[in-house]
């Protein structure tokens, strides 16, 4: 078998294993709950029969391995379980399916994250490469200083600064990004402008710094000096000599930062009261609505793992040593 295919398959297998381990961890969050949580969810007034029925619904009377199997097969079929909220002591059950809660919000979050990524990735690659090329110039120093400052800011600080200027002092954009499924695309874009801008600023700072470091590292290779000494121009050095070897580090940087986006989105959604999955998760954590927390965590984790896996695979299929084995 070609070494590239072999390595990629190996990496995919590792990815599946990781997903399995992560699903175990997320599943076991239900196991770790204290014994009286049924009472806590349903309220002090709940009758013992109601609590017992609730426990039976969760299947807590069965061994953990059986429940894990049921849970995983259900998840694979798109069933994330039923929310804890909406139940009360009398046994009336107005709880909703987790999937129904998550799906519309997931769409909103993906919309927000994609806008941020679409602006941030090209911008930070451009900044990263140019600052690496014009190292220690005034341009490089100022961009560096600005990004170092930005990565030191909590996301909510950036968000509130933007609100202060663009929503409060000069009301250009709305400070609350409330969208629903009926909101038209243009309107949606307008309302999501400030959250998207916040995410972009934070991501660009991180991504630009990492791109710069990766490119500088690459430019220090002996073969780059050799290319210079053979009379290659700066453009040729970058395009022909550095770039073919840069895909792996650049893919890693992008994947890492898109994964960071996943995290940043939580805080930003809360600040702007944007109806995304991050806000859903934070609310669920506050109410200890474990099935919803599990569902959201699973979605975040899977995105994160898949992004990193993709970066690994790009790194493998562009590695000349693997592409052209001995």
């Amino acid at each position: 078998m070609h070494p590239v295919i072999k390595t990629v398959l190996g990496r995919l297998a590792m990815g599946v294993l990781t997903l399995f381990a992560v699903s175990l961890i997320i599943f076991s969050s239900m196991e770790l709950l204290p014994g009286d949580f049924g009472q806590a969810i349903l309220g002090q007034a709940a009758l013992p029969e109601t609590v017992a029925a609730f426990r039976r619904e969760l299947g807590l009377d069965q061994p953990a391995i059986v429940r894990y199997w049921q849970w995983v097969t259900a998840v694979l079929q798109g069933d994330l379980g039923t929310s804890f909220s909406g139940r009360n002591a009398s046994g009336v059950d107005r709880s909703r399916e987790v999937v129904d809660l998550v799906l519309p919000r997931l769409r909103n979050t993906l919309f927000l994250a994609s806008i941020a990524a679409l602006i941030a990735v090209p911008l930070s690659l451009l900044l990263g490469v140019t600052t690496a090329l014009y190292r220690n110039t005034f341009y490089d120093r100022s961009v560096n200083m600005a990004t170092l400052t930005t990565i030191s800011f909590p996301e909510f600080f950036v968000a509130y600064l933007l609100i202060l200027f663009f929503a409060s002092l000069y009301p250009i954009f709305p400070s609350l990004a409330n969208v629903d499924s009926d909101t038209l695309f243009g309107e949606r874009l307008y309302r999501a402008a400030l959250p998207a801008l916040t995410l972009t600023l934070v991501i660009v700072a991180h991504m630009m710094r990492m791109t710069r470091a990766a490119i500088i590292n690459l430019l220090a290779s002996p073969y780059i000096q050799m290319a210079r000494l053979s009379g290659a121009s700066s453009a040729e050095v970058i395009l022909k000599h550095a770039l073919p070897n840069a895909w792996a580090p650049i893919a890693t940087v992008i994947a890492f930062n898109l994964a960071y986006l996943v995290v940043g989105v939580v805080v930003v959604e809360v600040v702007f009261v944007y109806p995304g999955i991050g806000q859903l998760m934070v609310d669920a954590v506050a109410m200890r609505d474990i099935p919803v927390v599990q569902g959201c965590a699973l979605i975040f984790a899977v995105t994160y793992i898949l992004l990193n896996l993709l970066a690994d695979i790009i790194g493998i299929i562009t590695n000349p040593r693997l592409l052209h084995p001995r």
């Binding site: 381990a21 992560v22 969050s29 995290v263 934070v282 200890r288 965590a297 984790a301 793992i305």
Partner: peptide
Amino acid sequence: VDVLMAIPSLIFALVLLSIFG
């Protein structure tokens, strides 16, 4: 560590806080 790092730490922290308070 590979497995623990496969989940974004803020998300992981949220899950654990929801369990332990």
